[in-house]
């Protein structure tokens, strides 16, 4: 399809540019790897004193962390351009360019850029995730792998939705980079188990307002906990594990829908006020 060929053209370009900015790319990669390693170090340091935090062991926490970073990494790679919209494009009066093409502006925005930086997060997270999986002796099987793909897709959808919604704020306020950074950074906090946050309000926030817990924590519950244990989170509804994929799917779809609505309304507003 045309979309694919356009996307490949942009990707090819990015890799060519990469060759030019080799050092920059390597530094970026290194920097992100170090940050991953840092959190690993933190957990390691903590676990030199305790065997488990709450009900979570070291390997389980690693798995959660690895998965969270995996989704974050992939999102970073393909969905980086939206940051420019929030910080820069609208404020500098460059957004109109997307409106004069016979193409969906959002699609064009996503295709234009892929971020090679994100590979730093990707590599680190893959290492951590598969190491933890191995140490836990977690065997996925065909069904597990499918489920993993589903969670992966939902996770990406949630990231996409959150970034889109915050970026769209720029249609009203000219620039929304700072708020978007904070909304995005909320994802850091879903690297850790939900039960760590003893406050109901916080748990609610990460599940239903900026649902990053739904990206990583709940999917990992599916693999790491049995049904009786799930009752703690879902109450009576946890009679079967498949509740989690349903829940994840619903949250993802809802947020995606809402964010697309905000985006579209934002463009309308942009066209009315011209910013």
């Amino acid at each position: 399809m045309r979309t694919l060929s356009i996307y490949l053209a942009f990707v090819k370009q990015q890799f060519q540019a990469l060759m030019e900015y080799r050092m920059d790319f390597l530094l970026g990669l290194l920097g992100l790897l170090v940050q991953q390693f840092a959190t690993f170090l933190l957990m390691f340091a903590v676990f030199t004193q305790v065997k488990a935090v709450g009900t979570w062991t070291f390997e389980e926490m690693l798995l959660l962390f690895g998965w969270a970073q995996l989704v974050r990494g992939i999102d970073h790679i393909y969905n980086d351009n939206i940051w420019f919209i929030a910080w820069y494009s609208i404020r500098e009066g460059k957004f109109y360019q997307y409106l004069i093409r016979p193409w969906n502006p959002l699609s064009l925005i996503v295709m234009e850029r892929i971020s090679i930086d994100g590979f730093g997060e990707l590599i680190g997270s893959l290492i951590i995730f598969f190491y933890a999986k191995h140490r836990l002796g977690l065997a996925l099987g065909f069904e597990g792998a499918l489920m993993m793909l589903w969670f992966f897709a939902c996770g990406l959808a949630i990231y996409f939705a959150v970034k889109l919604a915050f970026a769209a704020i720029a249609f009203w306020t000219t620039t929304s980079g700072e708020i978007m950074s904070f909304g995005y950074e909320a994802n850091n906090f879903a690297r850790y188990p939900l039960d760590l946050y003893k406050n109901r309000a916080v748990q609610f926030f990460i599940t239903f307002v900026l649902p990053f817990a739904v990206v990583s924590f709940f999917p990992m519950l599916y693999f790491l906990r049995t049904e009786p244990q799930l009752i703690r989170y879902f109450g009576f509804a946890a009679f079967h594990k498949w509740w989690i994929p349903v829940f994840t799917g619903v949250v993802a779809a809802a947020f995606l829908g809402i964010s697309l609505l905000i985006w579209r309304t934002g463009i309308r507003n942009f066209q009315a006020t011209g910013t």
Partner: peptide, 22 residues
């Protein structure tokens, strides 16, 4: 030539060695 990588390294080092992490 391009400051981005430098910034990321700086952030990473700061994260680890400033007492922020531990």
């Amino acid at each position: 030539t391009n400051v981005w990588g430098l910034g990321l390294i700086r952030n990473a080092l700061r994260f680890v060695f400033s007492g922020d992490l531990l």
